[in-house]
Amino acid sequence: MKNASRFTMGAIAALFLTASPALAYEAAEVKDGGSLSGTVTGGPGKAGTLKVTKNEDVCGKTVADESGKVKENKIEGAVVTIQGIAKGKKADTKPAVLDNAQCVFHPHVQAAMVGSKIDILNSDPILHNSHAYIGGKITTFNVALPTKGQKVTKDLKKAGLMDVKCDAGHTWMKAWIVVHDSPYYAVTDAKGSFKIDNVPPGKYKVKVWHETLGETEKEVTIAAKADAKLDAALKK
């Protein structure tokens, strides 16, 4: 009996746990979808280089610091996510890519949908060691890439903010991956602009995040077959 009651407890607990944080996303045809576009501005940016302290023959003496790319107040590499969409356009089935090339992660910032895969590549003839954390603390994978041309594929199992570092002594290496619960995300380009299309009409919360310039949340209404504008300003 004790076992039976424990089982019941477990079942109840499991129900709450799986139901509350993230409902499974469902792909369906989007009728009269709208879009969201805009520009992310702010600063101050940070141009400069990071000092290379290992494998200079492959990496060079310095690498570009990509943690605050701002040009004329426009922020590149901010991630825009529309919140709370449980049903909508089909997600990209191509795996995300994180390349270790000349001792820099490419891309520096990206977004992907939870449940998709990521290919971690090594384009350098030296050891890289991609160690990814989710939510700042918890290792989500830690994989060795000892040879040029190596590819390791991992699942992005959990939504949240991932950061990746290299444990092969390349202390300057850093990448960010926003793992979102729907395919409604975008990363701003060099002009600070972004566009997310095929959005089911409705009122949404939109998050804008940048690694060094902070984050903000806005509310936006996206009308059928129309482009809604969202400009956001970030400030350190």
Partner: peptide
């Protein structure tokens, strides 16, 4: 499986 919490990675996919 590697040693989580440390720099020791998993070699399951690399080797």
């Amino acid at each position: 499986t590697g040693v989580d919490g440390t720099p020791m990675p998993s070699y399951a996919d690399s080797l």
